[in-house]
C-alpha cells in the first residue's frame, strides 16, 4: 500500500509545524524520517495515522484520502508512537489480545497472532508479566508487537529502537528490514547510523520543510558535489607527482597533504571519477599506489549542514 503525501501543512496557531511537504513511500520501501526536534516529524506521522487532523493538502493511502476514509484506513496502519505509551497495569498477553481485538483481527486468529508477535519480538520469557514490570527495552518490544499485531500493510515507527541495548537494536533493525520487504515502513529516528542500516531512502525535514530526499548515497553526492579521494604515491618525487596529477583530465585540483610521504587530496571534476586515471598514471610512471581512499561525507555532517543552515 503506497503512501502519497501531497502539499501537507499543519499550523498550531501562528506556528507552522509542517509546511507544504510532498513525498511518496512505496510498498516494500523503508523510509527514514530525519530531522531535529520540533522539525515536524511527529506531527506528520500523527497526521498519517489519523490521530490529528490534516491542516492543508492531503494524504493518500492506497489511493484513498485520509481525510475521507481515515477511520477505515486505521486498520491498515500499525503505529508505534513516540515515547511508546502502554497500559502498564496489563499483562503482555492481555494487552496484545486487546490490541488485536481493537484492530479487528478475527476472534479465532487472535491467539495465534499474539503468539507469533511474542515469538518475533522476543517476549517469550516475559509474556506473563505485567508491562509495568518490564525493562525499557522489553516495553519497546511490546510497543512494536502491538503495532504489528494485525499484520498491517503500513508501519509507522517513531523512534523504534530507543532504550534498547546494542544486541536488541541489531535484532529490531533486522526485524524492520524483514518487514520492510513486503510492507510500507516510515521510521523516524535521531540515530543516524540506524537510518543507513535500516532504510532504503532518507527524508530530512527541517522547520516543517523537506530539505533532503534520497538514498544515503545520493545525499552524500549532493553534499560533496565532486568526488574526493586521498592518495599516497611511493617511488616518485613530490613535485613531479603533483605536476602529473594536475595534468590529468579528470582532476580539478590536487592538494598536497604530506610532502615527505607524498600524500595528496584529489578533487575530481564534477560528475567525473579520477580513480582510473590515477591508477593508469602510476602504471605509466612506474610509481606505487600506496593508498587510494574515497572520502565519504558522513551522514551526520549532511544532517548538520541541512538543519543548521
Amino acid at each position: 500500500m503506497n503512501i502519497q503525501i501531497e502539499n501537507l501543512s499543519k499550523r498550531y496557531g501562528l506556528q507552522t509545524a509542517v509546511d507544504k511537504i510532498s513525498f511518496e513511500v512505496r510498498t516494500g520501501e523503508i523510509l527514514g524520517f530525519l530531522g531535529p526536534n520540533g522539525a515536524g516529524k511527529s506531527t506528520s506521522m500523527k497526521m498519517i495515522t489519523g490521530y490529528i487532523g490534516i491542516g492543508e493538502g492531503d494524504i493518500l493511502i492506497g489511493g484513498r484520502s485520509v481525510r475521507e476514509h481515515g477511520d477505515d484506513l486505521k486498520r491498515h496502519i500499525g503505529y508505534l508512537p513516540e515515547n511508546n505509551p502502554l497500559y502498564l497495569d496489563m499483562p503482555i498477553m492481555d494487552y496484545l489480545t486487546f490490541c488485536a481485538s481493537l484492530q479487528g483481527v478475527a476472534k479465532d486468529k487472535i491467539q495465534s497472532r499474539v503468539r507469533l508477535m511474542v515469538n518475533i519480538c522476543g517476549l517469550q520469557a516475559e509474556k506473563h508479566k505485567k508491562i509495568g514490570e518490564l525493562s525499557k527495552g522489553y516495553r519497546q518490544r511490546v510497543g512494536l508487537a502491538q503495532a504489528m499485531i494485525h499484520d498491517p500493510a503500513i508501519l509507522i515507527l517513531d523512534e523504534p529502537t530507543t532504550g534498547l541495548d546494542p544486541n536488541q537494536i541489531v535484532e529490531i533493525r533486522k526485524l524492520i528490514r524483514e518487514i520492510g520487504k513486503e510492507k510500507t515502513v516510515i521510521l523516524s529516528t535521531h540515530i543516524l547510523p540506524e537510518v543507513e542500516a535500516t532504510c532504503d531512502r532518507i527524508l530530512i525535514i527541517n522547520k516543517g520543510k523537506i530539505v533532503a530526499n534520497g538514498t544515503a548515497e545520493t545525499l552524500r553526492k549532493q553534499a560533496t558535489g565532486n568526488e574526493l579521494v586521498k592518495v599516497q604515491i611511493e617511488d616518485g618525487v613530490h613535485q613531479q607527482i603533483l605536476s602529473a596529477l594536475e595534468l590529468l583530465p579528470s582532476i580539478e585540483k590536487a592538494l598536497p597533504v604530506d610532502t615527505e610521504t607524498n600524500r595528496f587530496e584529489i578533487h575530481s571534476k564534477l560528475g567525473m571519477s579520477s580513480k582510473r586515471d590515477l591508477f593508469q598514471l602510476c602504471v605509466e610512471k612506474g610509481w606505487v599506489l600506496g593508498e587510494l581512499t574515497p572520502v565519504e561525507t558522513r551522514l551526520e555532517d549532511i544532517f548538520r549542514n541541512l538543519t543548521l543552515n
Binding site: 495515522t49 489519523g50 490521530y51 486505521k74 503505529y79 515515547n83 502502554l86 484492530q103
Partner: peptide, 14 residues
C-alpha cells in the same frame, strides 16, 4: 497524561 489515548485513537476506534 500517559499518552495511551494516541495509541487508542490510532487503532480502528472512533
Amino acid at each position: 497524561k500517559t499518552g495511551t489515548i494516541e495509541l487508542l485513537l490510532t487503532k480502528a476506534v472512533t
